[in-house]
Structure formats: C-alpha cells, structure tokens
Design a protein around this nucleic acid. Structure first.
Length: 280
DNA sequence: ACCCAGGCGGGCG
DNA sequence: CGCCCGCATGGG
C-alpha cells in the first residue's frame, strides 16, 4: 500500500487545486488533463486507503495519474531525509501522504503568475474564470463535462481589459506578455527540467516570473526538487525556526534549506508551506 | 478604515 | 548588487 493522501495533496495549494473539483464527502477529485476528464477516488479517510481511477483509456489514465501525483516517490526515504526537527516532523504527521504534483509547465506558469501578491481563494477564482473563458470544452465519463486548461496560444487572444474583468488586476499585463513569449519565443516543454539553475534562468525570462514564481514552476511544473520557493509563509516560518527570528535574505534561507534537506528540499518546502498556511 | 495575500519590475543609492 | 516602492483586488 502506498503512502498517499488525495485530500492533503488536493488541499496543499498546488496547481490542480486551482481548477480541479474535490468532493469531500466522496473523497473524489475530478480534473481535466490532456483533454480527458479524470476522476480519482480514495476510499476512506486514511492516507493508505486504496485509489480508484476512472476516465479515458484505463492504462493510459492510470499511468498519468501515477506520474502527476508522483506516486513513484519513496515517501519513506523522503520523510527520513527531511524529518530534521520537531516542526517539520509535526507537519509530516499532520499531512502524511501529501505529495508534490507534476503539472503542465504552461499551466503552472500561468497559475503562479496569478498567485503573486494574491491569496489562494482568489487564485482559484481567477484561474477558474480563465479556464471558463479561454479553455475548450472536453467530455469524459467521469463527469458531465469540463473545460481544458487554455494553452499559451489560446491565451494570446486574451486582452488586458478582459483579464482585468476576470479579476487578474495588474497581473493581466504579465499574462499577456507570458502568453506571447511562451507561444513565440520559447518551448516550455523543451526546457532542461533537471538543470535547476539553467531552468530557473530560462523561466525568469518570462514576463511576471521572478525568482519565487520560477521556483514554483521548476518544482511543480518540472518536478525539480532542488527548487525551493520562498514565499512570505516560508520566510517567516524559517526565520523563526532556524534563525532566531532574525530577518534573513532569500539567498541565505535557500542555502540553509539546501544544506539541511539536500535533494529533497522541494518536498521539505511543501510540508513547511502547507503547515504554515493551514495554521495561519 | 486597515491589513494582508504562495511577488515582480523598475528605480535609486 | 541590495533595498524600496507601487501595484489591483477582495476578504477578514
């Protein structure tokens, strides 16, 4: 039995959180991917409850779910490496089975451009509005219907005025720029996912993508676990926990994380972030 | 009214 | 470089 919690993963504010539907009563997640509507159900509330996957061709969908929910990650090994102190141990105990997810690079880019200087509820609302307006309709057996996430080419048709009407605010300009750049100047699917520094440098060429958002894209869009996004929650939490409450630079916090959690620092970040956000 | 939210880009010293 | 500021929007 694998260590996986559909609920904690869904609630951890990762890209799919912003557009998928999660039914708490049935513990079922319905989300569109690759023009399919996929339904994932986990029986029981236990993180080891068995998974049921439906929608599309069974073999393909099952392997995609395994890939996107990173079900091949050895959580025992990861927990052993990142369980370095009481705080993160508590986070692991509270949210055992929470996985990082692997999402489409463009999808991740758009979602995290929207995320800046924003809150989760509004990120979700704006993302859904964008999908409703610019996505295309797909169907599946898992539910009645849904819309696929708009491609960067789809988004080049958007105007700043439209995006502001959907609530994007000053980020509307970034979205326009990013859609154009990712359609005409770079192929996100060809960036070097395993070369952290190079990947981040390339991502930061995109309009509205700075260091923090680039780390989010590297982590959740490319699966690069050396990425360590430092947002307000992480910064405050780590300054308090590991730096005696003193204000530190991003660089120093990142170096500390790397020395402490090494190749699994991205997972450490997700557990620290989720606990900090849930407790706030 | 005021503060905050998974920050970024531009400008200044 | 490193720091500071404005930025749109809605919820607590």
């Amino acid at each position: 039995m694998i260590t996986f919690s559909l609920r904690h993963t869904f609630e951890s504010a990762q890209p799919l959180t912003f557009y998928a539907d999660f039914n708490q009563a049935s513990n079922t997640l319905v989300y569109p991917q690759d023009s399919l509507l996929v339904s994932v159900t986990q029986s029981g509330s236990d993180e080891k409850g068995s998974l049921h996957v439906s929608g599309g061709r069974r073999g393909y969908v099952t392997s995609e779910v395994r890939r996107r929910f990173r079900l091949r990650d050895d959580m025992g090994k990861i927990y052993k490496k990142i369980r370095t102190d009481a705080y993160i141990a508590k986070a692991i105990d509270l949210y055992r089975g929470m996985r990082l997810t692997l999402n489409d690079p463009w999808e991740t880019t758009l979602v995290f451009i929207i995320s800046q200087f924003n809150n989760v509820k509004r990120i979700r609302l704006i993302t859904r509005s964008i999908i409703a307006k610019y996505g295309s309709e797909i169907e599946g057996r898992a539910a009645a219907s849904a819309r696929s996430f708009p491609t960067s080419a789809d988004m080049t048709k958007a105007t700043e005025k439209e995006l502001k009407r959907l609530g994007a605010g000053y980020r509307a300009r970034y979205i326009i720029g990013a859609a154009d750049y990712c359609t005409n100047n770079v192929d996100l699917d060809k960036l070097p996912s395993h070369k952290y520094l190079k990947l981040k440098e390339e991502l930061m060429q995109i309009d509205g993508v700075g260091e923090k958002v680039a780390d989010c894209i590297a982590l959740m869009g490319y699966g690069n676990l050396k990425a360590f996004p430092i947002d307000v929650h992480i910064k405050r939490t780590m300054e308090k926990l590991y730096f005696e409450g003193k204000v530190k630079r991003i660089r120093e916090i990142r170096d500390f994380a790397e020395s402490r959690w090494g190749d699994y620092m991205g997972y450490a970040q997700q557990y620290l972030f989720h606990k900090a956000r849930m407790m706030a």
